[in-house]
Write a protein that binds this DNA or RNA. Structure first.
Lengths: 185, 185
DNA sequence: TACGATATGGGGGCCCACTCCGTTTGTCAA
DNA sequence: TTGACAAACGGAGTGGGCCCCCATATCGTA
């Protein structure tokens, strides 16, 4: 979708595509990742067939909705990869949790991206995963985290926490702190 | 539903009730908590109106489906409350995670029970919560866990972990271990 | 301006949750 | 045993969601 390799699309195609993504962003922010696709199409002023022609699945639509936010996170990870490995990783997990807790539908979308994915490694999940891999590697290299910690496990944990605390950043961060510090003194 | 205070129900009512719960248990185990209620009714050989007359909501049906398993957990918590507070709590969390990871639909049902609840404090969620409160209190009393650990946070974490790892006990336990031990050495 | 490729959208098929209402069934008293 | 009534049932109906087909409209270009 919106594939640049596909060559120039007709102007109405582009216009509808943008309207759909913008409308979806608004409705997902209001109602979560499960909004009715019909409602998105209605609100965007297009037929439901058009929506399905532009996006093969709900997940494909969500990928475009969250692309910008995820790119922002990617850049942030780049910055953090220049500093102290330990605080870099912790800060990354905290900011990722913040973004996930404040962005309705993002946790569900990231988690869904982990299961059935385009193999091109360019989904939102893949981007976040790659950033996490880098930061975890750096932390492991200086023994700032336990050796058995894997990036995927960490991601799964953050996704799990932000899914059940969607829209409640305070609880999300309390739980994250618990995970980082462990239960026992 | 199945309220003993409601007096004797007709025999066909009881028969259909049991068939519905049994069928629901089988289909939820096979397909998860989101099975079609229509299918449950069909499979049980009753009209869909009957299902809705017996259970006001999907959650009400799930509560009965998981009641036995949750009662078993409650008894187990009672045993664990007699031993060492620290291993008691850890064992409890591990067995709770095992049950949640192996019982399709249970994590979703427990989590849903935390939100909109009958005020009678007798839902599956309430039972598990009460058990957790007791075990956490005992652990706190001997400083076996950090003082800021709350039973609700722990429960939310276990629910979060078992929801995203439904049907994958290995990952569930790896994540739980991460939570118990913390990330940093 | 006229044409062909591209894109559209209404409407249909299918499934789901939930409700209405005429019919059946269980129970209990006579 | 029978009759009557409350209790319970089930099928059909409503409204919604997802997804697709195909007749129609629109865009870009020669």
């Amino acid at each position: 979708m919106a594939n640049p390799k596909a060559g120039p699309q007709r102007s109405d195609w582009q216009r509808n595509h943008e309207r759909l993504v913008a409308t979806a962003a608004a409705l997902v922010a209001r109602d979560g990742a499960q909004v009715s696709l019909e409602e998105i199409a209605r609100e965007a002023g297009v037929g439901s067939a058009t929506l399905h022609r532009h996006f093969a699945s709900r997940q494909a639509l969500l990928e475009e909705v969250f692309r910008d936010e995820v790119e922002r996170l990617r850049r942030r990870a780049g910055e953090l990869a220049g500093g102290d490995p330990r605080t870099g990783l912790v800060t990354w997990l905290e900011e990722l949790t913040t973004a996930a807790a404040n962005t309705r539908g993002l946790p569900a979308s990231l988690a869904a991206g982990a299961d059935v994915d385009a193999p091109d490694g360019d989904t939102c999940h893949d981007i976040v995963r790659e950033a996490t891999v880098v930061l975890v590697s750096r932390a492991l290299a200086v023994a700032a985290v336990r050796p058995e910690v894997s990036p995927d496990d960490l991601l799964t944990l953050v996704e799990a926490v932000s899914r059940v605390t969607e829209g409640d950043p305070l609880t999300a961060h309390r739980l994250l702190r618990l995970v980082l510090d462990g239960i026992c003194p």
